[in-house]
Amino acid sequence: MIQTENLTKQFKTTLAVDRLTLQVQEGEVFGFLGPNGAGKTTTVRMLTSLIGPTSGKAIVNGFEVGKQDTDIRRSVGILTETPGMYDNLSAQFNLEIYASLYEVKDPKGQIEKYLRMLGLWDRRNDEAGTFSKGMKQKLAIARSLLHEPRLLFLDEPTAALDPEGARLVRDFIEELRKQGRTIFLCTHNLDEADRLCDRIGVFKSRLLVVDAPARLRSQLFGRKVVFHLHAPAPGLAQTAQALPFVQEARLVDNKLLVTLEDPDLHNPEIIRALVGAGAEIQFVGELRRSLEDVYLQLVKAA
């Protein structure tokens, strides 16, 4: 769906995007994370043919950026950082404009479908300027979907929304994923990325890393398993540490913290070893690192 090779954008003295090489597969929700000014919006603008690259190549939906720009714009949907609706026109008229520009075959039907789906049908005749931020965002989402694009770029879709509005938008993205659409999601909200994205790319002018959130956590921090013990005997940490697959084992109060490469595979064995050493295990859990930890570690290192 998206394939870039050394995609670069230079604005006079600022290198906004530096040799971005990336692939996004069909049906994937790809999270594009990075601090403010990292070049995320510039990347989206290049991939939607709004601006041209300085060098490098990008293929979007089979069309090449810079050569088949109109085809790209016709085939993708974009939710820009701000909704950018015509405030003194009705919600329906706003969508009619875009349905016509995207040459939608059944504009009335499509407009009704998405306004109903997003709960705005009863407000269709109201001016967009009277809508709350969340409603405007939903209207903008409807606008980006009118022509049924298989690839959707969402630039900070829940920014500036209250928790309820953000939840609604997230649920809708989840719904779009179920429909098999490919979503390129720029977000600051790491919890959102963790929940929605199949893979994430951490970006700061250049791509720092790309992987599934869980795998990134595991690669950067390993996976920690916590054994809650009843009156732990001294030397239990050494027993665990002696096992070849254990990276680190520490006893803190009544908890034994063990870093493992693959807990799913090694937990039974370590439990057997601990029980054999006289440990009374109350329960076992995994200590999850947040995506925020992953993100901060990567961005700081960059």
Partner: peptide
């Protein structure tokens, strides 16, 4: 100023 230009330019209009 109303930020409506970007979505407009993102359409296939020449």
């Amino acid at each position: 100023t109303t930020r409506s230009l970007e979505p407009l330019l993102a359409t296939p209009i020449t």
